[in-house]
Simulated scan of single mutants.
Amino acid sequence: MEAGTISQAAQAILDAYDTGKPIEPVVDQFPGSTIRDAYRIQKEVVHQWLAGGDTVKGHKVGLASLAMQTQMGVNQPDYGHLLTSMFQLEHLPIDASTYLQPRIEPEIAFVLGRQLSGPGVTVADALRAIDYVVPALEIVDSRIRDWRISIVDTIADNASSGGVVLGSKPTLIHQADLAKVSCVMSINGKTTGTGVGGAVLGSPINALVWLANTVGPLGTTLEPGHVILPGSMTRAEPVGAGDVVTATMGELGDVTAVFTDSDEQ
């Protein structure tokens, strides 16, 4: 893609945020778009947010589990940026109308205590860099109409990022075997999904290693204090106003998101 086309595609995604109206798939509007193009589009979208005063507070790995890859029809992970404006507080009302087509998924969030920069990051490096973990719920969303996404579409759309809710119980990394941590997600008291940490690339730690080694050569360093979402332990489920979502993750504790509409806040 030419630079002008990258800017055009990024603006289409930004317009969807502004208008609340999803757009047609990027691959339909811009035939021949590649994964490399998609990351360039994502970078331009994030650049515009930063120019508007937002800040990067972490990154996410998307499509890291077989369940999510199967659900979305892809065969590899991707990554996106987490911005300050995306973080929501646990138990407090979240305006569902902020999102276009929201879904929710449970994750084990890493909070970094040290800088992590690839290439060459190992599992040992990643473990040393983690300050603690907390249970999290990621609100995924798509600016692409009806979630008709390819890997190119979701990458361009910042890995279908929407929001993040962090639990309040920190656990040191050596206090839990993350691959064996079990998860039960419920919506309005009904179980909607179960999973284990090992569903995420064999272990959520592997997702962190993949992320550091993928973004490092692109000039991005994972910074102390940043939140890293390694990928979902279950399928994503649709949510809307009136829904209360809880993910319980054994010894890691639980996290709850409460969705309302703007008139109830």
Rank of each mutant, 00 (worst) to 15 (best):
E90N: 15
I104H: 02
T34S: 13
G52P: 09
T171K: 14
G242Y: 09
F110R: 04
A96W: 00
A67D: 07
M233R: 12
H174Y: 05
L208E: 02
T122Y: 08
I205E: 00
G80R: 13
D95V: 15
V46R: 03
A96M: 08
Q115D: 04
D141L: 06
G240N: 05
L166A: 02
V239F: 03
S203P: 04
G20S: 07
I13R: 12
M1R: 04
T192C: 12
L222P: 13
R148P: 10
A9D: 04
Y17G: 10
T84P: 00
R143E: 01
T220F: 03
W49C: 05
T5C: 00
I41E: 00
V200R: 09
D243H: 14
L208C: 08
S150N: 06
C183E: 11
R36V: 13
G202P: 04
P230W: 03
S161R: 04
E264P: 02
P170G: 12
N158T: 11
L112F: 14
E138N: 14
P204I: 08
D141W: 02
G52E: 11
H226W: 09
V152Q: 08
N188F: 04
F30C: 04
V184F: 01
K43Y: 00
I108L: 08
A129S: 15
S65V: 08
T34E: 12
V27P: 07
A129G: 07
Q115Y: 06
M1H: 09
A16F: 03
E105S: 12
A67V: 11
Q76K: 12
G53S: 06
I205W: 01
D157Q: 05
V133F: 03
V184K: 10
H47E: 05
W210L: 14
G167N: 15
G198H: 11
Q88V: 14
S142V: 06
A247Q: 05
N188C: 09
V200S: 10
D254P: 02
A176H: 11
W147P: 03
D254N: 09
Y39D: 01
A124V: 11
D146N: 13
P217A: 15
L127Y: 00
V46T: 07
F87L: 13
L211P: 15
G240T: 15
